[in-house]
Structure formats: structure tokens, C-alpha cells
């Protein structure tokens, strides 16, 4: 168990949790709201018409390209840091996510306001193959995904408040969690839409030979770390290793 999350394995050969998580371990506590003393607010559950690898193939430079709300709100995140565990294909990210001033786009700005005493404004941990922990603004969210078939993936988004939140903060986390980052969320509905479009595109002829910012397999190019696809390589490499490819 680590930061309130119970890890279970059927393997007798796997090592300890610190070894399994590598450099992403410190990010889990931050994504879990600090002390991980959480209570459940509820779920959002949905099936996407895509293979599980499409759901998991999340390049971190996509937000300003895909999410129109970010440009309409003039909302940009500051530089952060990231870590990976190449031997297991895990990834972790952290960034400053200061909400922009109201420019008239939204009538209710509370959807992007941050309240509470959380230490980190934006943090995500992606554990191979499909488990995701996110903390964005006041939303603390665990995403449990599982393949239903080759062309369908079910994702259960679980949302939490901190046990020591006051009533107002619990309400805020509930209101923000409901409308911001799930399958119907202001930001994340577009991710959901793209999963299905990518699945359709994956069936077209040709091979993918270019990855942004990747000079060679496993080598980062000259671009800033948040604008390239290098982190995906460790994930793909580990998948190929597990699959014997």
C-alpha cells in the first residue's frame, strides 16, 4: 500500500513497490492530495470505442492543440517537471496550473478556480498499462481503465475530496470534478472524442515513422520536455518487451 492506494500482484517474482514505481513514486503523494486522506465523491463511467493502447497513448503536448477552452480562456500552464520509470513504462508529470482571470468566456468561473490547501496544482501519474492518478486544480481523480474488447475500453473515473476539507471545499471539488475533467468535462470531453477518432485513423494504411521531439529511439531532441513525445517511447518499449515483440 502506498499513499492510500493498494497495489496487488499475482506474481511472485515482482520486486518491492519502490523498485516497481521508480522515480514516479514521489509524484503519487502529490497527486493524491498530499497526505492521501481521502473520501469518495463518486464516479463517472464510460466506454470509449478504442483499443486500450489508444486510450493510454497520451502525449503531453496535446492540451493547447486539442483543448480549445484553454486558448479561449487564455489559460496556459507554467513549466513543470516530469519523471519516468523506463523499466516499467510509468510516467509522472507536475506543472503549475494557475487559472486565468475572467475574460468573459465563462459565466461561472468556479469551474477553473482552485480552493483548499492542496500542495500541487497539477500532477499526473500514469502507471503502465492503464492506471492514472491526476490532480488538477481541486480535482483529485483516479482513473481505472480496462479493455472490454479490441475496439472498446471502459474507464471508471473516481473522484475524491480530502477528509479534512470543510463543507465548502467538498462542494467545490464536487462541482469541479463533475464538469471539468471527465467524459463530459469542459476540458476532457475532447480527449474522449479524440480516442475514437484515433481508433478510426489507426486503421488507415501506412506506418508511423515520426515522433515529435525524438531524435532517435529513447533520445530526446532539443525541444523542451513538455513539447515532445519522448516519454511515450519508454511506454512503447516496455509494451514491446512484455509482448515479446
Amino acid at each position: 500500500m502506498m499513499h492510500g492506494i493498494i497495489f496487488i500482484t499475482f506474481s511472485s517474482e515482482v520486486g518491492g513497490l519502490p523498485e516497481y514505481l521508480g522515480d514516479v513514486a514521489p509524484f503519487i503523494a502529490q497527486a493524491m492530495g498530499g497526505d492521501s486522506n481521502l473520501k469518495l465523491l463518486g464516479y463517472q463511467k464510460v466506454r470509449y470505442a478504442c483499443n486500450w493502447k489508444v486510450y493510454g497513448d497520451n502525449d503531453i503536448f496535446h492540451p493547447p492543440l486539442l483543448h480549445r477552452a484553454l486558448s479561449m480562456l487564455n489559460w496556459q500552464s507554467a513549466a513543470g517537471e516530469r519523471a519516468s520509470c523506463p523499466v516499467r513504462g510509468h510516467l509522472a508529470l507536475k506543472a503549475e496550473l494557475t487559472p486565468p482571470p475572467n475574460n468573459g468566456t465563462l459565466k461561472d468561473m468556479s469551474i477553473i478556480r482552485e480552493v483548499g490547501n492542496d500542495e500541487t496544482s497539477s500532477c499526473a501519474v500514469i502507471l503502465f498499462p492503464l492506471f492514472v492518478i491526476t490532480k488538477h486544480l481541486s480535482v483529485i481523480n483516479l482513473r481505472f481503465a480496462s479493455p472490454v474488447g479490441p475496439n472498446q475500453t471502459e474507464v471508471n473515473y473516481a473522484y475524491f475530496a480530502r477528509c479534512d476539507d470543510d463543507e465548502e471545499t467538498v462542494i467545490h471539488r464536487t462541482r469541479q470534478g463533475s464538469n471539468l475533467l471527465g467524459p463530459v468535462g469542459l476540458i476532457s470531453m475532447e480527449d474522449a472524442a479524440i480516442f475514437q477518432r484515433t481508433q478510426i485513423g489507426a486503421g488507415t494504411p501506412g506506418n508511423m515513422v515520426f515522433q515529435k521531439g525524438v531524435a532517435s529511439l529513447g533520445t530526446q531532441g532539443q525541444e523542451p520536455p513538455f513539447s515532445n513525445e519522448v516519454h511515450i517511447l519508454s511506454r512503447i518499449r516496455y509494451y514491446r518487451e512484455v509482448m515479446g515483440m
Binding site: 469518495l40 463518486g42 464516479y43 462542494i171 462541482r175 463530459v184
Partner: peptide, 16 residues
């Protein structure tokens, strides 16, 4: 559980 799929608890949120 208080979370919802869509939670527009005021007129402004409906318009948003």
C-alpha cells in the same frame, strides 16, 4: 454520492 456526470447547479452553468 454527490458527484454527477453534469452538474449545472445555477443558471450561469446552464448557459456555460
Amino acid at each position: 454520492l454527490p458527484l454527477a456526470l453534469m452538474l449545472d447547479d445555477n443558471r450561469n452553468r446552464i448557459e456555460d
